[in-house]
Design a protein around this nucleic acid. Sequence first.
DNA 1: GAAAACCAATTTTTT
DNA 2: ATTGGTTTTC
Length: 765
Amino acid sequence: MQTLLENLNPEQLAAVTLPPQHALILAGAGSGKTRVLTTRIAWLIQTGQVSPAGVLAVTFTNKAAKEMMSRLSAMLPINTRGMWIGTFHGLCNRLLRAHYRDAGLPQTFQILDSADQLSMIKRMLKALNVDDEKYPPRNLMYFINNAKEQGLRARDVEVNDDYNRKFVELFEFYDNQCQREGVVDFAELLLRTYELLTRNQPLREHYQGRFRHILVDEFQDTNNLQYNWLKLIAGKGNAVFAVGDDDQSIYAFRGANVGNMIAFEREFNVQNLIKLEQNYRSHGHILDSANTLIANNSKRLGKNLRTDAGHGEQVRVYEASSDIQEAQWIIEQVKSLIGEGMLRSEIAVLYRSNAQSRVIEHSLFNSGIPYRVYGGQRFFERAEIKHAIAYLQLMDNPHNDSAFLRVVNFPTRGIGAKSIEQLQDAAKQYGISLYAAVPYVAGKAGTSLGGFVKLVEAMRFETQQLPLQELVKVMLEMSGLIPHYQTEKEGADRIENLEQLVSAAMLFVSEEGYGIDTPAYLGPKAAAASGPALLTEDGVEIIDADTPLAAVMSPLSAFLSHASLEAGDNQAQAGQDALQLMTVHSAKGLEFDAVFITGLEEGLFPHENSAQEEGGVEEERRLMYVAITRAKKRLYITFSQTRMLHGQTRYNMKSRFFDELPEHALKWLSPKAQQHHWFGLKSQSAWDEAPEAAANSIAQSFSNKVGNWRIGESVSHAKFGEGVIVNLEGSGANMRAHINFGKHGMKLLDLNIAKLEKLAPRLGH
DNA sequence: GAAAACCAATTTTTT
DNA sequence: ATTGGTTTTC
């Protein structure tokens, strides 16, 4: 107990030991948010205010949930496995498995990931002969997800016009199709649970009576449905402890609503609002930069980070002549940091969009510095794994049409487009799944399709008594996946991945507390007989927090959920000490000794698309705030005069965010060679290491000069402010320039009339 | 049924 | 420039 609360600062201590009432904790970056959350849970349990079963902790990512679990098990002498700590989706899945009948779902319902959902929508549009130019599948998907996130079904959506009406119609059809197939998308997991608890009073009251303390991480990222879901579970008497940071809300584009923080304060009549403003991560200059920048946002809840760490070093700002040179400069700096003894894994290079990583990766590859790029394709998203999963899905629930179509002819078994068409017609006619429609297809197509059905049934039969990992092994052989990749030239890697799937299954079984020999199909009932029994209250089946997963899901169903809900690591070279490359978004929640924020240019960061969106620039600013606050000791911000994007050279102005940073905290650097002496000075230029790039730049600079002016040059105009010359035309008395003035847009100016000043790159003091 | 040719799109991302 | 998806061709 004493040790639990030791070393907490006064605000943290106050938050951890709040009375059992609603509370909103405004936790700034690096203020010990996760620590407060986990210590709060441990304290509640240790002081006997709540039993482990009475705690519900919700996070957004599996990573965060795992982190919380492991910290908790270090603090408490209890088994945390049974505790209800997880993502919104994970917890809903668990609830729906336990109450599948009440929720109107088949026991083996399966979860569609976004890719599955999109392909399902495409398939539906095709089947209904809908013009997918007029009704793009992606838009329909957004429409459906958006409606569900507002808690709306098709019948609840307001219809304004014919176009909208069609969307609603398709939404309804989509939901029916999902129901036929026994599949649910991500939003459906939440909405179904919400509806289940709304409709079913005994069930609702049971859970409300049980979860006395509800803790929510990253509250600023909740969408409306999640907010209402929390409200419902909280009921009247329970305490919601919400932790969040409005300044770090960067997911509005996927439905997150920062307004939920204010709504929470008001609707829950929150009496306990605590701000955690003491930062334990960054040095002073870095923190000053973050604070000054974010002060430019309106509609903040108000918060200012402070540190005891001292000013530390200034933020280094560097102007590069090109994206290639930017990358090379970064690598030089990284080398020198490593030379000073910094770990590579403590250095991060951040960028606004993934496309920017290419150039950096290229230079890194040549320099031989080990690096790891986050955000690539993940394990369960690989094609061969998707195929294997589809077979497993069919074995568990053959009515999953997506799975059916994915593998019905893979490996090829003579079932072509014609056969599939006939089958889809039959399925449509009878309103059943493709699998169920096979007997209605006559002729040759029917025979080959029948063969496929027999295969699936044979696989089920052969694996009835086998544990999960054995089942996967048998499936890989019988389906023909392994034999198929064995004959392929480049199949070795894929086979290796498929073998990893077997290991993943084994690991899953042991981690989730299933017996290593438990048959994979063993249903919840049967499994429960060997574990704690299901409780019954008011005729409602109730699962208990200490009940292992086995009581609600068979190993196979659970594994398939896991594959959908947790796409797995992007498994780069783990374990190695490597430089970290990632988008600013994926850096959220992480920290590094040194951070490079790259591409600070108008159009890139803030991104050009953000200009039109309501509140877009403010979200970009929060994104920059997140980026800055990742750094502990060193922060570098870079931008470039020229950049290749979509195969075209672009000339961007430096980002407006530079004007929003405190001058005293910055140190402006410049390339070794002056950009103005592009020609002839090769030996001492900054491009020594890239003769090719230098040659290109020089060639370009010759053809792109008019009079005294050069494309890419920075200029200043009395009315429009700073800009960059993007294009030059004419000569002598007819010289004109296209100039990108950022906020003021693109202008065409006559160079003999407009009074332009040349802007020299800024140098350090 | 698979390879080649063509064409559009291209911020951020977790579940 | 690159990639993913679709259509055409062998």
